[in-house]
């Protein structure tokens, strides 16, 4: 299990209680905390910038519209993941016929200025990887993207791709194995 540095901050449960009592600032904090993760999931499923943005927006509208149904003892992150998954698959069903290669629209993220030379170098090599990733079965591709891009646990990945924790772990390792084989890594 990866050890993660988490700065001290208000827990999700505390923020949810604050939202219950009408504090909009708490709602903003929860959005700031999870929009990136939510967008990452939507993007992994939909592979379209605009669709993913819409799905992400709808996800949060639904999260707060139904905040009364969220039980305080549950896991808010897991709840957001489930709603993001459902929104993404709902949009995917609607736009199945207009799927296109959206990677042209995408700007790969750079973490900081110091990373640029290394990132540029990796980006050139990554263009080849991108094509190969697209040849993977959906579950393996999703498992890899959600694990590497978003840092989700295998349990959370299973929740999104609709399989068990063990199966999502297998999907990830098979996918990585296949990529290594195809890329000669």
């Amino acid at each position: 299990m990866a050890e993660v540095n988490i700065p001290k901050r208000k827990s999700d449960e505390v923020l949810v209680r604050m939202v219950y009592s009408g504090k909009l600032a708490a709602m903003d904090t929860l959005i700031d905390r999870y929009y990136s993760l939510c967008f990452g999931i939507c993007m992994a499923v939909l592979k379209d910038y605009d669709d993913a943005s819409d799905a992400c927006q709808n996800c949060f509208v639904n999260v707060f519209k139904n905040i009364g149904k969220f039980r305080g003892d549950g896991n808010f992150r897991s709840w957001v993941l489930t709603i993001a998954r459902n929104e993404s698959f709902s949009v995917l069903r609607q736009s199945k016929n207009r799927r296109e290669n959206v990677y042209e629209k995408m700007e790969p993220a750079l973490r900081s200025r110091e990373d640029v030379p290394r990132e540029v170098f990796l980006r050139i090599e990554s263009s080849q990887v991108r094509e190969v990733v697209e040849t993977l079965p959906d579950k393996q591709r999703l498992a890899i993207k959600l694990r590497i891009d978003e840092g989700l646990s295998f349990k959370e990945i299973g929740q999104i791709i609709g399989s068990s924790e063990g199966a999502s772990r297998v999907n990830y390792h098979h996918g990585i194995g296949k990529l290594k084989e195809l890329l000669g890594a």
């Binding site: 990452g40 990132e119 991108r130 891009d149 990585i176």
Partner: peptide, 12 residues
Amino acid sequence: LIEKLFVLRPAT
């Protein structure tokens, strides 16, 4: 390989 995949992640 993971570094190359990570670079591919879309910017929010």
